[in-house]
Design a protein around this nucleic acid. Structure first.
Lengths: 206, 206
DNA sequence: GCTAGCCTACCGATCGGCAGGTAGGCAACA
DNA sequence: TGTTGCCTACCTGCCGATCGGTAGGCTAGC
């Protein structure tokens, strides 16, 4: 049992300064990218001085890393939840649900997810290990899903599964450059992408 | 209005300093992005001092703009040439040729094309009109090609042509993040993408 | 002598980060 | 209860580095 550190934990649980900083950082990173987002901007948005950020984080990289990782995790969790909810549907409908969840997470409420795409390859040479690790886990989720589709026999034949995954993620993540709220319908986009990827022969799994 | 352009034109024709600067700028922009490419780096690569760049260009933005526009133009011309060469093939093979040309231009010899993708949305708020104009022309090329495919009846039904174009360009341009020479075959990737986009009534001969 | 093409030297702005100070709350103890 | 001391969470103020850009001088070739 922790006895003395109650304060920091309380701040964290209350959605305290740390979360507040990350919220503003995510918003700024999303719209301005890594190098055009300064610690002074973040601090000003939060309402504190720049140096105070160093009480909560060790460096700018640590802030960005936290935002990016949270972003990927949010998408990951959203897609996992969607797949769970669509557990008994056809493989193709599970694909559509996953795509829709990915797109919704990208363009929905969260600045984190959008920032994580935009900032993913920092300017830095070595991408932090934590980022690569979390990203890899999300890649594996899609590998598993595509394997599932392949097993169900609904994939367009003659396409390497790994290539298909790269194409699909590219098409989805590219939407950050053109998607605008109200001008596109995520469910429709997801259905169209699923139609492209999977055959139109529906094979019921239940 | 037409002032001292004779000098620049001559240098251009001679393949002189201006082209040399753009070559190095393109290479650096490709690997480091906009904000991490400094005029000092470019000048050092060329072998001159930073201030000397200002004899050939008015600003950093002008350099980047030239690189980006050249990049888009190169892809545009490559795809146009490929479509010309494949004039009499089936619509689906023309699509494959266009995709292959786009990918080859992205990952082939030219740093310009890759830089144009990576840097396209500068940090700047207003993307220069020349960039948007050239980019729009390239978009129109793909709109026309997809219209052609639609007329030929080879498109997967139920997908808005504009969505299809955005997906396709996203999948292709996303390859800058994962494509590595020798680990992927552009012709194969192009064939797979064409298979995804167009109807599957053609059986691949492996 | 003119000028193209480059140079040195400098500018103000801004970057991430560090040193060190301080207000105020909480806890322990006399 | 009053005092003391620690800790959190912020602050002011500064640092060296680097940014894009400017001013003005030098030199070689026509």
């Amino acid at each position: 049992m922790t006895v003395v550190t109650g304060r920091a934990e309380r701040a964290e649980l209350e959605g305290g300064a740390r979360r507040l900083i990350l919220d503003h950082a995510a918003r700024l990173l999303r719209s301005n990218g890594y190098h055009q987002t300064s610690l002074r901007e973040i601090a000003e948005a939060v309402g504190i001085r720049k140096a105070s950020l160093y009480y909560h984080f060790r460096s700018k990289e640590e802030i960005v890393e936290a935002v990016v990782n949270d972003g990927v995790r949010l998408v990951h969790d959203a897609v996992l939840a969607a797949l769970g909810a669509a557990g008994k549907a056809t493989a193709r409908e599970r694909l559509k649900a996953a795509i829709a969840a990915h797109l919704a997470a990208l363009h929905g409420h969260s600045d984190y997810t959008c920032a994580s795409i935009k900032v993913f390859s920092f300017g830095e040479n070595p991408t932090p290990e934590s980022v690569r690790s979390i990203r890899r886990a999300y890649d594996d989720l899609w590998r598993a899903l595509i394997d599932e589709l392949a097993s169900a026999g609904v994939l367009t034949p003659g396409i390497a599964p790994e290539h298909l995954r790269l194409f699909l993620l590219g098409a989805m993540n590219g939407s950050v450059d053109w998607y605008r709220e109200g001008r596109f319908d995520i469910a429709q986009l997801a259905g169209e992408l699923a139609t492209l990827v999977a055959t139109k022969d529906m094979i019921r799994t239940s």
